[in-house]
């Protein structure tokens, strides 16, 4: 029984840790499927987290925080679009720029506005997204096996967690069952064909970048107002890059993206739990190794040892109409 609780706690923190990855990963999926590489997931998420923390502090509402996060993140996404779609600039350079602008601005503005060393004040519970107890969770709690699973694992998360996981089938549906999704995938593979069909390539790509911004903003808001209680300097700590790695791992497909994010979240949860606990046979695994594992796995995947990850064909290439 005790081991079941331990395992459930491990899975529970897996879910909590993989939500920001999942949101950012799906964000990147919209963008990259449309042919716009996005290294700037990290920056958009960070700026979103800051906006959510600041707005929630001022207005005392997590929903206003969420709205601010989405707004800022979309604005940064549009900068990325302006540079890489309108001006056909290098998408990677633009993404890198956004990461730096976000990293610097959040600290400078945070320090100037709140004077707490770049963090936003601690949020009270009513300005955060609080855990929701699903109906019947308390009642079923004592039922063996199913009860704890339902109570610990499925119930008791904030609304953003459920939103993130709901986004997976939704994204699948948008991508594979709607006209917009078909065009989105087409513009990432062969923009000339989309153009020939009379659909505007830039407008389609801009919409993809906006979708990406919205989801990154939600991911940021989750970090600052659901998982944490306020913004902390460099709060994303490379999650945007792990999301990117997960996206490659999932070969740019939504359902697989969820599993990749859960895997990386699980590794993170195990790393936290294993600190100071030696494993049988192997001995103590350095926590740094566990932290590096998502990156190592991605490199191994990229090396082609676990199947081959083929990015959207027109990814990273600006579309020039005349040619």
């Amino acid at each position: 029984m005790e081991s079941l609780t331990t395992i459930l706690q491990l899975f529970d923190s897996t879910i909590r840790l993989s939500v920001p990855l999942l949101l950012a990963c799906l964000a990147g999926l919209y963008s990259e499927r449309a042919g716009i590489f996005d290294i700037g997931l990290e920056g958009k998420m960070l700026a979103g987290a800051f906006a959510a923390g600041a707005a929630a502090t001022w207005f005392g509402s997590a929903y206003i925080g969420l709205f601010a996060a989405v707004l800022i993140s979309v604005a940064l996404g549009l900068v990325h679009g302006f540079a890489s779609i309108t001006h056909r600039g290098n998408q990677i350079v633009s993404g890198v720029a956004i990461n730096f602008i976000a990293a610097g601005t959040t600290v400078i503005l945070g320090q100037a506005w709140f004077s707490q060393g770049g963090r936003t004040p601690s949020l009270p519970n009513d300005a955060r997204f609080n855990p929701i107890n699903l109906p019947g969770a308390q009642a079923l709690r004592d039922v063996p096996v199913i009860g704890p699973i339902y109570y610990e694992l499925i119930s008791g998360h904030s609304i953003l967690v459920y939103l993130a996981f709901a986004m997976v089938p939704f994204t699948w549906w948008v991508l594979y069952r709607t006209r917009f999704g078909l065009r989105l995938r087409a513009v990432g593979e062969n923009p000339a064909a989309v153009d020939t069909a009379g659909v505007s390539v830039p407008w389609l790509r801009y919409r993809a970048v906006i979708c990406c911004g919205v989801l990154c903003g939600v991911a940021g808001a989750y970090l600052a107002t659901a998982q944490g209680a306020g913004f902390v300097k460099d709060m994303t700590a490379g999650k945007g890059y792990i999301a990117l790695a997960a996206l490659i791992f999932a070969k740019w497909r939504p359902v697989q993206a969820m599993f990749a994010c859960l895997l990386f979240g699980f590794l993170d949860a195990v790393a936290i739990r294993m600190q100071g606990h030696p494993l049988p046979l192997i001995g103590e695994v350095p926590v740094q190794f566990m932290q590096a594992l998502p990156y190592i796995l991605t490199v191994v995947l990229l090396a082609g040892f676990i199947g081959k990850a083929i990015p959207p064909k027109a990814g990273g290439v600006a579309y020039v109409k005349e040619r």
Partner: peptide, 12 residues
């Protein structure tokens, strides 16, 4: 951190 912003803007 102001430098990080300037760095980002220069890259942009």
């Amino acid at each position: 951190d102001m430098i990080v912003i300037i760095q980002g803007l220069v890259i942009l």
